[in-house]
Nucleic acid binder design. Structure first.
Length: 266
DNA sequence: AATAACCTCAACCGCTGATTA
DNA sequence: TTAATCAGCGGTTGAGGTTAT
């Protein structure tokens, strides 16, 4: 009865991934795909459980991932989607190409939440903090069925709490009044985004899953992107084969050796 | 320079619904 | 139908880095 037992818990490694492990995982998935996470670690020669491999791949190694802080537009979109969906990070992430649910969740908890609180806005209800809960009409901000995003996501007439989020230290130190004054401009920016039918339909489309996005570029060629998490600072924002990084010849050649030049689309 | 306090985010944990034998 | 495992999700943790004292 039932399926075969999952991975053998004994001897399964935990903790941070090493470069070697990353290479093994990338190499295996690029060659064989990831039809079965349970079997993958053994086949790839990794002493990890399938769950850990899946997380590492989806949150860090996927070729289509963007790196670096969320842009202002992305941040605003996250806030807007959160007002509709609540803490449905995977659904929010599916609307932001190249971003993971974990990344968005972390960014929300460490940056956006604080900014909203600083502005006197409840991050959960997206309403002013001093507003009595009984006065809050949640039906306008959070659909009864959070999954039902076929509900008008947001129009310029929909009365969500319009939130402006700044992205720099300088800006974040500004007063609420200052931020309110810039709100119109930024709302205008977001309105423009929503006025763009093509972008709008893409962002609100359920068609493209993270996996599809990932495997549409199932190699490290022109569309794919591989980042080296061991590089910090500005370099970390560039793919390892990008001109910005390619001057580090040794590292580049190391990766070419590991994955084969063809993997980089040359 | 040393230490404490704070911040960030990768990774883990535990739960849920779907799937399978 | 049942029981076991699966993938996926959201919440939480803690190591390492940064900033303040």
């Amino acid at each position: 009865m039932g399926r075969q037992p999952c991975c053998d818990k004994l001897g399964v490694k935990k903790g941070p991934w090493t470069v070697e492990e990353d290479k093994k995982l990338i190499n295996f998935i690029l060659t064989n795909g990831h039809c079965c996470w349970r079997a993958l670690p053994k086949l790839a020669g990794l002493r990890r459980c399938g769950k850990s491999c899946r997380l590492r791949w989806t949150n860090y190694l996927r070729p289509d991932l963007k790196r670096g802080l969320l842009s202002h537009d992305e941040e605003q979109l996250v806030i807007d989607l959160h007002a509709n969906l609540g803490n449905k990070w995977s659904k929010i992430a599916s609307r932001l190409p190249g971003r993971t649910d974990n990344e968005i969740k972390n960014h929300w908890n460490t940056h956006i939440k604080k900014k909203l609180l600083k502005m006197g806005i409840d991050p959960m209800t997206h309403q002013p903090l001093n507003q009595e809960p009984s006065n809050i009409d949640n039906s306008k901000t959070i659909p009864s069925n959070p999954d039902d995003v076929s509900v008008e996501p947001k129009t310029t007439n929909t009365k969500y709490v319009e939130i402006s989020v700044t992205t720099t230290e300088e800006e974040s130190s500004s007063t609420v009044t200052d931020q309110n004054s810039s709100m119109d401009n930024e709302n205008h920016l977001i309105d423009n985004i929503y006025d763009d039918d093509e972008l709008f339909s893409y962002l609100w489309s359920d068609e493209t899953t993270k996996d599809e996005a990932s495997w549409s570029d199932s190699n490290f060629g022109v569309g794919g992107t591989l980042y080296d998490h061991n590089i910090s600072g500005a370099d970390a924002d560039f793919p390892i084969w990008s001109p910005e990084r390619i001057n580090d010849e040794k590292m580049f050649l190391d990766y070419c050796q590991d994955f084969g030049v063809h993997d980089f689309g040359f």
